[in-house]
Simulated scan of single mutants.
Amino acid sequence: MAANTLTARIGVLPVGFGLLAPAGVYAAGAAMALRNTVQHTLGARGAWAALAAGTVLSYLTANGHVATSSAIAFGASETVAIAFYGALAQCRVRGLLANVAGIAVDSVVFVWLAFATLAFVPGQLVGKACGLLIAPLLISCCRCLTPAAPVPAP
C-alpha cells in the first residue's frame, strides 16, 4: 500500500548509481522482507491474507493504474516468493532466495505494466535490495522497543 501511494504521488526518483525507480521501491522491498516474517509466523495462508489486504488498501490509496499494475505484479511475485519460501523449508537462506525471486518478478512485471518500459528495472532491483536491508533493522528495533515479558519467580 505504501509503495503504491508513494509511486502514485511522487512518481520516479533517483536510487543511486545513476538509476531511477518508482518512488515506492523502498517500501516494496521492505514489504517483501516482512512477508517472510508473516509467512514464518502465520503460514502461507497468513501471507496470502496480508497480500489480499494490501491489494485492497492499495486501491483505496493509489490511482487505479498503479494499483492494478502493482496488484498483478505483486500477485505474481508473491506466488513465486511464497512457493520458494515453502519449498526451501530446510534451507538456511530460504528467505533471501524467496526475496530475490520475488524482487526479480515484481520488478519486471510492475515496471512493464505501470510504465510500458523496462528502463526502471535496474533501479527497482537496487531500491528493493535497500528496502530488504532496512526491513530487518526495523524489525529488530521494534523487538528492542517491546517490553520483555516478566520473568516468573522461582
Rank of each mutant, 00 (worst) to 15 (best):
G18C: 06
T37L: 15
L125Y: 05
F74L: 08
G54D: 00
A148V: 11
L19R: 12
L96W: 09
V15R: 03
S70T: 00
S69C: 06
C130K: 06
A49F: 07
A49Y: 07
V108R: 01
T61G: 04
P147N: 10
N63K: 08
R9M: 13
P147W: 04
L57W: 02
F17L: 15
A81Q: 10
L133G: 15
A49R: 08
P14M: 09
E78A: 07
E78S: 13
G18K: 08
G86S: 10
A53I: 14
A119N: 09
A114G: 07
V109C: 03
A23I: 02
L132K: 00
A135E: 10
Q39R: 09
V121D: 05
S140C: 11
C91L: 14
R45Y: 07
C141R: 14
G54R: 03
A104T: 12
G43D: 01
R35E: 08
H40G: 12
N63Y: 08
A149V: 15
F120E: 00
C144Q: 13
A52W: 08
A114P: 08
R9Q: 14
A33G: 14
V12M: 08
L60H: 08
G18S: 10
A89E: 14
S70R: 00
T5E: 11
T37W: 12
L125P: 01
P22M: 11
E78Q: 13
L132V: 15
V93L: 12
P147E: 06
R94M: 07
Q39S: 09
S140F: 07
F84T: 13
T37A: 15
R9C: 09
Q39N: 12
A89M: 09
L133A: 11
A28C: 04
I139Y: 04
A104P: 02
A73V: 02
A28Q: 00
V38A: 10
V93S: 15
W48D: 02
A148H: 12
G127W: 04
K128R: 10
A47R: 00
G127N: 03
L125S: 04
L88T: 09
G46T: 05
G24L: 02
W112H: 14
A153V: 15
A23N: 03
T37G: 12
L113Q: 05
L20T: 13
A153H: 12
F120P: 01
W48K: 06
V126N: 04
V105E: 06
G11H: 01
C141M: 15
V15F: 04
G16L: 09
I134K: 00
V93Y: 15
